[in-house]
């Protein structure tokens, strides 16, 4: 995986916006003073008439997006996940979700990999908050290839969408033939002793963990769950039936995110033991992204060690 090309999914986002902007004039893009970081600025450079900055006023940005969508435009709004989701949660709930408007919220800088900016900017609650909004699609790509397809899928879907993008450049492990489908997970590599379900930039670490486990004689199924809501129930249930035990790995609080979404499916359909890896009811802190991923156990070593333990039990 170390020899793979690395691209940050925020770059994939910016490039795909430009691509979509060329084919559909209804697309408009807004940012709240972070266009350089979220890469929405790439669209702005290409289509200055359809890009506008809202300043540091995210609540208004969400409402303006709602208004634009009622006019038949397709607004994509971007800023850091903390300010795209946590700050204007109620605006998203009441002005976008409730009227089911065609607004795409694409946030960069989700999770602890934000790094040195510290806890105030490390948004580990976005999946949980967005999952509670009825009919909101919640997605998180694991690499460049998936991010590009996800942004296009969001464009095609008529309704509210949330996508979390990452700041850090991560390995592009999918090839061009990969086909992302909303609400469908992907078996990245098959296995039968344990299933590890993850998404986002931790996925390459999970793939590495599976390789470590394989060398130790443990067969792990790796599932990429790009859509957190609606979650691919069939894939989760099949994993429990065929592998017996499930581990979830997310760069998110283990409260309300991917892990709990998986647990809900299993509790109601096919109870099975689950171990959730993620941020466990604490805040992050300033450090290099890599250090934080290690410290919070979102790395191949910890994932594989956890799996080994869990399988033995």
């Amino acid at each position: 995986m170390s020899d793979m090309k690395k691209i940050a999914t925020r770059d994939s986002y910016g490039a795909t916006l430009v691509e979509l902007g060329k084919i559909d004039k209804r697309i408009v893009v807004m940012d709240a003073d972070l266009a350089g970081s979220t890469k929405s600025g790439m669209f702005g450079k290409e289509f200055p008439d359809r890009f506008f900055n809202c300043g540091i006023a995210e609540e208004n940005m969400i409402g303006v997006a709602a208004g634009l969508s009622t006019m038949g435009l397709i607004p994509f709004v971007s800023t850091f996940a903390m300010f795209a989701v946590c700050r204007p949660y109620e605006q998203i709930r009441n002005s976008v979700g409730y009227p089911h408007l065609n607004v795409k919220i694409c946030a960069s800088h989700g999770g602890i990999s934000v790094g040195a900016d510290g806890a105030s900017h490390q948004c580990c609650e976005d999946f949980a908050l967005m999952r509670t909004i009825p009919q909101m699609l919640v997605m998180c790509p694991s690499d460049d290839i998936e991010a590009r397809q996800m942004v296009k899928a969001a464009y095609k879907y008529n309704g509210p969408v949330y996508i979390r993008l990452a700041r850090a450049a991560t390995p592009v492990y999918h090839d061009e033939n990969y086909q992302f489908e909303v609400g469908k997970g992907e078996i990245v590599s098959d296995g039968s002793d344990v299933a590890i379900i993850a998404n986002g930039i931790v996925l390459p670490e999970v793939v590495k963990a599976a390789e470590i486990l394989k060398a130790e004689g443990i067969s792990a199924r790796v599932i990429n769950m790009g859509t957190i809501k609606p979650i691919d129930k069939d894939l989760v249930i099949a994993a429990a039936k065929e592998c017996g035990k499930i581990i979830t790995v997310e760069e998110h609080t283990i409260i309300g995110g991917l892990g709990e979404a998986v647990c809900s499916v299993l509790a109601e359909n096919y109870p099975a033991p689950v171990k959730r890896l993620g941020i466990n009811d604490v805040y992050g802190y300033s450090a290099e992204a890599e250090e934080l991923m290690q410290a919070f156990g979102l790395c191949a070593d910890n994932i594989s060690a956890t799996a080994k333990d869990f399988v033995k039990r």
């Binding site: 609540e59 409402g63 208004g67 009622t70 006019m71 435009l73």
Partner: peptide, 25 residues
């Protein structure tokens, strides 16, 4: 009804978005 409202402060942002949208279009 052109916009769902009720949570105070939010309708005006949507109105602003509509006005901006009309200009774009």
């Amino acid at each position: 009804v052109d916009m769902s409202t009720g949570s105070l402060g939010q309708g005006i942002s949507a109105a602003v978005g509509m006005a901006k949208g009309a200009k774009i279009l």
